[in-house]
């Protein structure tokens, strides 16, 4: 079919995935799932503050509930896959959609966060890989069977802590655009509520990053000593 032909009813696409708008909708839904997971993840991890024994009990409790344990694992893995299947391919297509760049360009509405979704997204992916490796004890240094001790020793190394903070900053920026954007993608646009979309994105993005960093800081003995 040459480029100049017009689609007819017979050739209209049957599956939802073939429409770029629907792929974006799936991306928005998977983003919601991932954000919901982040809050649950944080809430569970507050047990860290009660020490190694309490945390190990929490892990045993999780394992005793396979629906919670594997169910959550499968759902977030699927959400991540959807995000990875749509994000980079759309980014590449968008670049190809403008083969010759503007020599002068003036932005009036877009944000820095919106234009760097790919950068913040890839930073987050790297962060997630290192984070899982740290918890599971796959990092070369200080690996043990105890998730609690793997976390503790990991955060005594500056590259791990730096990447953690960097990951949280990337998360805040990613959600600043992502949370606002998902309302628009899912069609939630109403003059009465539009004014709340941006503040909501700021609160969610900054909120989860702040909560995560605070939890890690409170787990460093030196910080706790200072607070005492």
């Amino acid at each position: 079919m040459s480029k100049s032909t017009v689609i007819t009813r017979d050739t209209a696409l049957p599956s939802a995935w073939r429409y770029s708008v629907m792929r974006k909708v799936f991306m928005a839904i998977s983003g919601m799932v991932l954000v919901a997971f982040l809050f649950g993840h944080w809430a569970g991890n507050t047990v860290l503050l009660d020490g190694e024994l309490a945390f190990n009990e929490y892990l045993v409790w999780l394992q005793r509930h396979p629906i919670l344990h594997y169910g959550v694992w499968i759902v977030i893995a699927m959400a991540l896959l959807v995000h990875l299947a749509v994000g980079p391919s759309h980014w590449l297509k968008n670049r190809r959609a403008r083969p010759e760049r503007y020599y002068k360009r003036k932005y009036r509405a877009t944000t820095w966060a919106a234009r760097t979704m790919m950068v913040s997204g890839l930073t987050l992916l790297l962060f997630i890989c290192v984070h899982v490796a740290q918890v599971r004890g796959w990092l070369v240094f200080g690996a043990s069977d105890s998730v609690f001790r793997n976390l503790q020793t990991g955060f005594t190394r500056w590259p791990v802590t730096t990447l953690y903070v960097l990951g949280q900053v990337a998360l805040a920026f990613h959600l600043y655009h992502g949370v606002w954007s998902l309302f628009q993608t899912l069609g939630a646009h109403h003059p009465r509520y539009n004014q709340w979309r941006r503040p909501f994105a700021v609160v969610v993005g900054l909120g989860i990053a702040f909560l995560n960093i605070a939890l890690v800081l409170l787990n460093i003995d030196a910080v706790r000593a200072v607070l005492r």
Binding site: S20, K24, K93, N94, Y107, T110, A114, H177, T185
Partner: peptide, 8 residues
């Protein structure tokens, strides 16, 4: 390209 909600 695909809409990325830049609102430009």
């Amino acid at each position: 390209g695909h809409c990325s909600n830049h609102a430009e």
